[in-house]
């Protein structure tokens, strides 16, 4: 009996995006990261090329996180109030390939810090680590329009990834991105049509489609993971089918979503039926990330170093030909 492996002939590929600029490229990064470029579905080496492995960015907040469970804060003991030291630990001890700096303190409900503080945090983290940076605002549109241009300027020439441009708020961040030579995250709430629309809007401002990474919101395991997973699959299929406005690499925010789940943070003492919290929380984050790898994500933003290590091992295995 002859069995022929069924192979799909895809028309196109995911865009390739490089983040970070070394001295030769006008920046100060010691390393760069390249994602995308696949001509097939995730890890189907028998069918196409997968030139770049998915990468893990570890997230650092610009203020001490509130109410993190012990399991999560323990690996960062002593550095959670210092984003530069926190980032350094992520890179040097935990092998982060990128740092995602989240400028949370600017939120009006938080410390309501301004553009000066944002720029200072960016500079400190850039100085502390040599890996490429993702710089992400606080999530409140008006405040982000205030701080992101200065944060972007503080990293001019470093080829960072800025987040995020949204359907009803994209102009300021896109302009900053263009001015300072960065890449851009376009965001849409689990909606492939809105995602495409945002991509069209920012490219109409003159940003090359090759400078975009897409973020379509993430649901943690048990809390909408399947929505994000299916949107990723649909987007990857659209890219391979040749839709140029959906061909950008994908990013997933795993850490914050996974650790929102009560199954991740509740202590065994309070939920004996769920077993040991130490392993459970880490696994919750690692499994959320692992499912998204198969959905087609290119950049995973993660929190716990042990989950990072587990997912890195998983990626190693999936990249073996």
């Amino acid at each position: 009996m002859v069995f022929e492996v069924p192979v799909e002939k895809w028309a196109s590929a995911v865009n390739t995006v490089t983040l970070g600029a070394t001295a030769a490229e006008g920046g100060t990064r010691a390393s760069t990261v390249t994602v995308g470029g696949s001509t097939t579905l995730p890890f189907l080496h028998f069918e196409g090329e997968i030139p770049n492995r998915p990468v893990i960015a570890m997230e650092v907040l610009d203020m001490e996180p509130q109410s993190w469970p012990e399991t999560l804060s323990a690996p960062f003991d002593g550095v959670l109030n210092d984003p530069a030291a926190w980032a350094k630990k992520c890179v040097e001890e935990y092998g982060a390939e990128m740092i995602c700096l989240r400028l949370l303190s600017a939120h009006p409900d938080s410390l309501n810090t301004g553009p000066e503080e944002a720029a200072a945090a960016v500079k400190k983290v850039l100085g502390a680590v040599g890996v490429p940076l993702i710089i992400w605002g606080c999530g409140q549109a008006d405040k982000d329009n205030e701080i992101m241009p200065r944060a972007s300027e503080a990293a001019a020439g470093e080829n960072c990834l800025l987040g995020s441009a949204e359907q009803d708020n994209y102009k300021t961040i896109t302009a900053a991105c263009l001015a300072d030579g960065h890449k851009l995250i376009t965001a849409a709430p689990i909606d492939i049509n809105i995602q495409k629309q945002v991509n069209i809007l920012v490219t109409e401002m003159g940003l090359d489609a090759g400078r975009i990474v897409m973020f379509q919101a993430t649901g943690g395991l048990g809390y909408g993971m399947e929505y994000a997973y299916s949107i990723m699959e649909r987007t990857r299929l659209a890219a391979l089918g040749g839709d140029k406005m959906l061909s950008m690499p994908l990013l997933a925010v795993v850490g914050p979503e996974a650790w929102k789940a009560k199954e991740a943070k509740t202590l065994e003492a309070d939920a004996p039926q769920w077993g040991a919290e130490k392993e459970r929380g880490v696994l919750w984050e690692a499994m959320t990330a692992t499912c998204f790898l198969h959905g087609g994500t290119d950049i995973l933003v993660m929190w716990h170093p042990k989950a990072v290590e587990m997912v890195r091992t998983t990626i190693d295995g999936l990249m073996k030909k």
Binding site: L221, G222, W274, E279, R280, L283, M287, C291
Partner: peptide, 18 residues
């Protein structure tokens, strides 16, 4: 298999098969 490892596995299955 442990309680803490099966809870996420069964949750992943529940999600994917929704």
């Amino acid at each position: 298999a442990e309680l803490w490892s099966l809870l996420p596995v069964l949750t992943a299955r529940q999600n994917i098969y929704t």
